[in-house]
């Protein structure tokens, strides 16, 4: 039964990828444009989901994800500060974004952790406030730098609609490749994460240093999220929905579950992006599509947890 489900996801993924790239007999140029977007969608889906998955494990909190723990918000603040000191390319903007995403996650984690595990309400609340703070800065900066409304919407709600010049193309491929490698390196921590999911005490007594694993995870997810935010803006809730669905299909062992997020996360983002760009004659912000699925799911999770804790 599980094998059948896995196969089904895989077939869907292949079909959709083919459709996404080759729909409507495109010319070679169009295929190349689409391929850049396809790679970015795949990376966004994988990155957001795997970061969500590992953050859920290390915070011992099934509601954690890059958006809700303030990593994305922090990254956006850094990005805007970068714009303020007249950095232009998304590559160079990744650096301040990374630094501030670390600040964001550090604040959230410090505020929300009580005796080793994080309090759900504190985690979500702090993350949300960091995001509101980031949005306020977006509007402030928009005034001073004369950002267009489109740009503001894309920053706050995400979009894969980016233009990469021919000169930057190679650099883009290399960066995305490195991003994939960084995310995939989290899979090497599978057994440590399996143990941390049982609690810090249990992990420590079995031979894991929880603090080391947590720091590694925070840094890797901050780097990758900062890179992603610099290219796509904030895409919320993917890191919440996809890990949950994937766990129910692929099981809870990190070694099998983390790699499969490439399929499920990739598929979800490709599908959302397809809806965003082809539902109307104009393009919708991608983050509004993912949030449309994500927020009801978020409420469902909270209700479920409430029942469980009674």
């Amino acid at each position: 039964m599980r094998l059948f489900k896995i196969l089904l996801v895989f077939i869907f993924f292949l079909l959709f990828s083919y459709f996404y790239l080759f729909n409507g007999a495109p010319s070679a140029d169009v295929i190349q444009l689409r391929f850049v977007r396809f790679l970015l969608a795949l990376f966004a889906g994988f990155s957001l989901s795997i970061n969500g998955a590992v953050l859920q494990t290390i915070t011992q909190n099934p509601l954690a994800e890059p958006y809700l723990v303030g990593i994305s918000g922090g990254a956006l603040i850094g990005y805007l500060i970068g714009l303020g000191v007249s950095l232009q390319s998304p590559f160079s903007l990744s650096l301040p974004a990374f630094l501030f995403s670390l600040v964001g996650v550090f604040i959230t984690y410090k505020v929300a952790s009580v005796k080793g595990s994080t309090r759900t309400e504190l985690l979500v609340l702090t993350g949300v406030f960091i995001n509101i703070f980031a949005s306020s800065i977006v509007f402030l900066v928009a005034y001073f730098l004369n950002l267009s409304l489109d740009r503001i919407i894309y920053l706050l709600f995400g979009s894969l609609n980016i233009v990469i010049g021919d000169k930057e193309l190679l650099f883009f491929y290399i960066s995305i490749g490195l991003g994939f490698i960084l995310e995939a390196s989290l899979i090497l921590l599978s057994r440590e994460l399996d143990l941390i999911a049982l609690g810090d005490e249990e992990a420590h007594s079995t031979g894991v240093n929880p603090e080391m694993v947590k720091k590694t995870v925070f840094i890797i997810s901050s780097i990758t999220t900062a890179f992603l935010v610099s290219f796509t803006g904030i895409i919320g809730f993917v890191g919440l929905i996809i890990p949950h669905i994937t766990r129910s299909i692929f099981g809870k062992k990190h070694l099998t579950y983390l790699p499969s997020l490439l399929l499920t996360g990739g598929l979800f983002l490709l599908a959302s992006d397809f809806v965003a760009k082809s539902l109307f004659s104009f393009e919708l912000p991608l983050g509004s599509i993912t949030s449309l699925f994500g927020i009801p799911f978020f409420f469902y999770m909270i209700m479920k947890r409430r029942h469980e804790s009674i």
């Binding site: 859920q56 011992q60 099934p62 399996d194 999911a197 049982l198 609690g199 005490e201 809870k252």
Partner: peptide, 12 residues
């Protein structure tokens, strides 16, 4: 070591 508290995140 068997610690007194045990709060696993997932049901394995």
């Amino acid at each position: 070591i068997l610690h007194s508290s045990f709060k696993p995140l997932y049901n394995i």
